[in-house]
């Protein structure tokens, strides 16, 4: 009985956009001895980039915020514009509003069109709506003429753009990009950066991008998050972070002594 009353008082997830994500005292340990320990608050309309050496826990943090992994302790809350907590009974509904694009995402053994349509089909979108949205997304990433090609025929740059389109088509409240330009050539990198500048940056949604490319972080970020050994060491304006990093580890990182 008490349970049903609580549910009534919670804001309906369907009619509420996630406008803020708060990760509070997250701890996640792996057997290797690695431990992620951090708190973080993300606002909509700000492009955050997460930088830091390999193995500092960037992907782990992204997975936890994307509800794809659970922290050992601590909480992640998803808030609407009134800062009310959105806690559905089943986190699949929340998970469908927060989309993560993994580093080198797997493509499905089907056409480019069907790859992009997959998430919409999971959300039970109608055939007409799917057709329209998929074509719009393919156009945004410049893959329109490949729509009937098999996904496995794409180059690595095109594959990465397909992975991006697959997420953009869902118009998520929060988009978490894990190294979207990892191991791409300069031209492909520029294409992806353009899409992020045009489509993602102005979306007014919650956006986080992990990157290894410091020039990219400098050029795209509104806010830089520096991670080191599982901890968030700095959260700063990119100009400040790249010219006068506050911590010693960040100085070593920015000046190329650690990566």
């Amino acid at each position: 009985m008490a349970g049903s009353i609580t549910v009534c008082c919670l804001p309906e997830l369907e009619n509420n956009m996630i406008e803020k994500i708060e990760a509070c005292n997250i701890i996640k340990r792996y057997n290797s001895g690695f431990a992620l320990e951090c708190s973080l608050s993300l606002q909509k309309g700000v492009l955050y980039t997460i930088v830091g050496p390999n193995g500092s826990g960037k992907s782990t943090l992204l997975k936890i915020m994307g509800l794809l992994d659970r922290p050992d302790s601590g909480s992640v809350t998803y808030l609407n514009k009134d800062s009310s907590v959105l806690n559905p009974q089943n986190d699949i509904h929340l998970r469908r509003k927060v989309v993560l694009v993994p580093t080198r995402a797997a493509l499905f053994n089907e056409t480019v069109f069907d790859n992009v349509a997959y998430g919409l089909r999971l959300r039970k979108a109608g055939r007409k709506a799917i057709e329209g949205k998929v074509m719009k997304s393919l156009n945004e990433v410049g893959l329109t003429r490949h729509k009937d090609a098999h996904a496995y025929e794409l180059s690595s740059g095109e594959a990465q753009r397909l992975a991006l389109a697959r997420a953009l088509v869902l118009d998520p409240d929060a988009l978490l990009l894990d190294e979207p330009t990892a191991s791409l050539d300069p031209d492909s990198t520029r294409l992806i950066e353009d899409i992020i500048m045009k489509k993602v940056r102005n979306s007014g949604k919650i956006t986080v991008m992990v990157t290894h490319n410091l020039n990219q972080a400098k050029a795209l970020a509104d806010s830089v998050i520096f991670m080191y050994k599982g901890k968030i060491m700095e959260l700063a304006d990119p100009d400040v972070f790249f010219s006068k990093p506050a911590t010693e580890s960040a100085q070593q990182f920015v000046f190329g002594e650690i990566y």
């Binding site: 994307g66 794809l68 699949i92 998970r95 469908r96 989309v99 993560l100 694009v101 993994p102 080198r104 995402a105 797997a106 499905f108 997959y118 998430g119 999971l122 959300r123 697959r166 997420a167 869902l170």
Partner: peptide, 12 residues
Amino acid sequence: SLRFTAYTLGAT
């Protein structure tokens, strides 16, 4: 990574 990718796109 197929399973993980399916999860990221909202699969049960």
